[in-house]
Simulated scan of single mutants.
Amino acid sequence: MDWVERFVATAHKRLNNGKPITANTIKNYTSTLTKLKDFEESQNTKYRFEDIDLNFHRDFIFFCREKYGLNNNSIGSLINRIKTLCRNIEFRRLSNQSKI
């Protein structure tokens, strides 16, 4: 999850609605990254951005319930953070294409 690591590492430089990203948000991103790394290890797979699909979604939810005993709200928060990561990657790709 190199792309997630880059996102978390540069989070302090970005703005959210015109304001710096808070330390708590960065902590939540770091927690999400940890769970994603554990998931990769348990699946014996190195996930790329392109691998994030409904199968990933289903398997990740199952993993979070089984390994961490998380409830639906906690898992939903993780999924929302993953969506944020994916939207950021999509935005960067679109902005890079427009420069060409």
Score class of each variant (00 low, 15 high):
residue 3 W to V: 03
residue 3 W to E: 00
residue 4 V to D: 01
residue 5 E to D: 04
residue 7 F to N: 07
residue 7 F to A: 07
residue 7 F to D: 08
residue 8 V to L: 00
residue 9 A to P: 00
residue 11 A to T: 06
residue 12 H to V: 03
residue 13 K to R: 11
residue 13 K to H: 08
residue 13 K to P: 03
residue 13 K to F: 09
residue 13 K to E: 13
residue 14 R to S: 09
residue 16 N to A: 08
residue 17 N to C: 10
residue 18 G to Q: 03
residue 18 G to W: 08
residue 19 K to I: 02
residue 19 K to L: 10
residue 19 K to M: 03
residue 19 K to D: 01
residue 20 P to F: 11
residue 20 P to K: 14
residue 21 I to V: 15
residue 21 I to T: 09
residue 22 T to V: 04
residue 22 T to Q: 10
residue 22 T to I: 04
residue 22 T to N: 11
residue 22 T to C: 08
residue 23 A to V: 11
residue 24 N to P: 00
residue 27 K to Q: 08
residue 27 K to M: 05
residue 28 N to W: 03
residue 28 N to G: 05
residue 29 Y to K: 03
residue 29 Y to V: 00
residue 30 T to G: 11
residue 30 T to W: 10
residue 31 S to I: 10
residue 33 L to I: 00
residue 33 L to G: 02
residue 34 T to V: 11
residue 34 T to Q: 09
residue 35 K to S: 05
residue 36 L to R: 09
residue 36 L to W: 06
residue 36 L to V: 00
residue 38 D to G: 14
residue 40 E to N: 12
residue 41 E to S: 12
residue 41 E to A: 09
residue 42 S to R: 07
residue 43 Q to G: 00
residue 43 Q to F: 01
residue 44 N to F: 06
residue 44 N to I: 13
residue 46 K to G: 08
residue 46 K to Q: 12
residue 46 K to R: 15
residue 46 K to D: 08
residue 47 Y to F: 15
residue 47 Y to H: 06
residue 48 R to N: 11
residue 48 R to S: 10
residue 48 R to I: 00
residue 49 F to H: 10
residue 50 E to C: 04
residue 50 E to Y: 06
residue 51 D to Q: 05
residue 51 D to Y: 02
residue 52 I to H: 05
residue 53 D to N: 15
residue 53 D to H: 07
residue 54 L to R: 14
residue 54 L to T: 11
residue 55 N to K: 12
residue 55 N to I: 15
residue 56 F to T: 09
residue 56 F to C: 03
residue 56 F to I: 07
residue 57 H to L: 13
residue 57 H to D: 14
residue 58 R to D: 12
residue 58 R to T: 14
residue 58 R to Y: 12
residue 60 F to V: 11
residue 60 F to P: 03
residue 60 F to K: 02
residue 60 F to Q: 02
residue 61 I to M: 05
residue 61 I to N: 05
residue 62 F to G: 00
residue 62 F to H: 12
residue 62 F to K: 15
residue 64 C to T: 05
residue 64 C to P: 07
residue 65 R to T: 01
residue 66 E to T: 15
residue 66 E to Q: 15
residue 68 Y to R: 07
residue 68 Y to M: 02
residue 69 G to D: 10
residue 69 G to V: 02
residue 69 G to M: 05
residue 71 N to M: 01
residue 71 N to S: 01
residue 72 N to F: 09
residue 72 N to I: 06
residue 73 N to L: 09
residue 74 S to V: 04
residue 75 I to R: 02
residue 76 G to L: 01
residue 76 G to I: 00
residue 76 G to P: 03
residue 77 S to H: 12
residue 77 S to D: 01
residue 78 L to W: 02
residue 78 L to G: 05
residue 79 I to N: 01
residue 80 N to M: 01
residue 81 R to E: 11
residue 82 I to F: 03
residue 83 K to N: 13
residue 83 K to A: 06
residue 86 C to R: 10
residue 87 R to L: 06
residue 88 N to Q: 09
residue 89 I to Q: 12
residue 90 E to V: 15
residue 91 F to W: 13
residue 92 R to Q: 02
residue 92 R to G: 00
residue 92 R to M: 03
residue 92 R to F: 00
residue 92 R to L: 04
residue 93 R to I: 06
residue 93 R to Q: 10
residue 93 R to L: 04
residue 93 R to E: 12
residue 94 L to M: 14
residue 94 L to Y: 13
residue 95 S to G: 04
residue 96 N to K: 12
residue 96 N to S: 10
residue 97 Q to H: 11
residue 97 Q to N: 12
residue 97 Q to W: 13
residue 99 K to C: 10
residue 99 K to T: 11
residue 99 K to H: 12
residue 100 I to E: 10
residue 100 I to Q: 09
residue 100 I to F: 05
